[in-house]
């Protein structure tokens, strides 16, 4: 069953990644946008584990652990930035953040 899982998982990973890109493009709420980025990181994790499984390399697991840590750090800082933004603007609608224009 290894082979079919391998292919399907890679496709699933690319699918999740594409959904993440679409989310970043379509969503208007900053937090939903950032959730889409998290989805993309999850897709990358899935790809790592799949490759590790396929090739019998255990390193993939380690890489995933580190990426999760980075995702957590990013989420912490990101949500703090959202809170700061909310204090200044009272909303998190991305379309209306247009003070900076040339």
């Amino acid at each position: 069953m290894g082979e079919s899982i391998f292919e399907a998982n890679l496709i699933l990973s690319l699918f999740l990644f594409t959904v993440g890109i679409l989310g970043v493009m379509w969503k208007r709420n900053a937090i939903s946008l950032f959730m889409s980025v998290e989805l993309m990181l999850n897709a990358a994790n899935l790809a790592f584990v799949t490759f590790a499984f396929q090739h019998g390399i255990i390193d993939g697991g380690i890489l995933v652990l580190f990426i999760m840590t980075v995702a957590a750090a990013e989420a912490g800082v990101g949500l703090a930035i959202f809170i700061a933004l909310f204090r200044v603007r009272r909303h998190l609608r991305v379309d209306e953040h247009d003070m900076l224009h040339g």
């Binding site: 840590t69 980075v70 957590a72 750090a73 990013e74 912490g76 800082v77 949500l79 703090a80 930035i81 809170i83 700061a84």
Partner: peptide, 13 residues
């Protein structure tokens, strides 16, 4: 990285 994240999160929030 975690230290940086902690400082960053605190200073922003």
């Amino acid at each position: 990285l975690l230290l940086v994240a902690v400082i960053g999160a605190i200073v922003m929030a």
